[in-house]
Simulated scan of single mutants.
Amino acid sequence: MDTVLFDMFGVIARTQSDESRAALERASGLDPEVFWGSYWGERQAYDRGDVDGPAYWRTVGRGAGTGFDDRAVAELVELDLASWSRVDEEMVSLVTGLSQSGVRLGLLSNIPFEIADLFEAEHARVLDLFPVLGLSCRIGRAKPEAQAFDWCLQGLGVEPGRVLFVDDSERNVAAARELGLGGHHFTSAEGLRKELSERGITAD
Rank of each mutant, 00 (worst) to 15 (best):
V4N: 05
I12H: 06
I12F: 10
I12K: 05
S17K: 10
A22T: 13
A23N: 10
A23C: 10
S28F: 09
G29K: 09
L30I: 08
P32L: 06
P32W: 08
V34P: 00
F35T: 06
F35G: 07
W36R: 09
G37P: 04
G37H: 13
G37E: 14
S38R: 13
S38W: 00
Y39A: 00
Y39E: 01
Y46A: 03
V51T: 14
D52P: 06
G53T: 01
A55G: 09
T59S: 14
A64K: 10
T66I: 03
D70Q: 12
R71S: 14
R71I: 07
V73H: 09
L81M: 04
W84H: 13
S85H: 04
V87I: 15
D88M: 07
E89T: 14
V92K: 07
V92Y: 08
S93I: 01
G97E: 05
Q100Y: 00
S101D: 11
V103C: 06
R104Q: 14
L105K: 01
L107V: 09
N110S: 05
N110Y: 01
E114K: 04
I115D: 02
L118C: 00
L118N: 08
A124Q: 14
R125D: 15
V126R: 02
L127F: 15
L129Q: 12
F130W: 07
F130H: 08
R141A: 15
A148K: 10
A148N: 12
C152F: 06
C152R: 02
Q154K: 14
D168H: 09
E170C: 00
R171T: 15
V173Y: 05
V173H: 06
A176Q: 10
L179A: 13
L179F: 12
L181S: 00
G183N: 07
G191I: 12
L192S: 08
R193P: 00
E198R: 14
R199I: 05
G200S: 11
T202Y: 09
A203Q: 10
D204M: 03
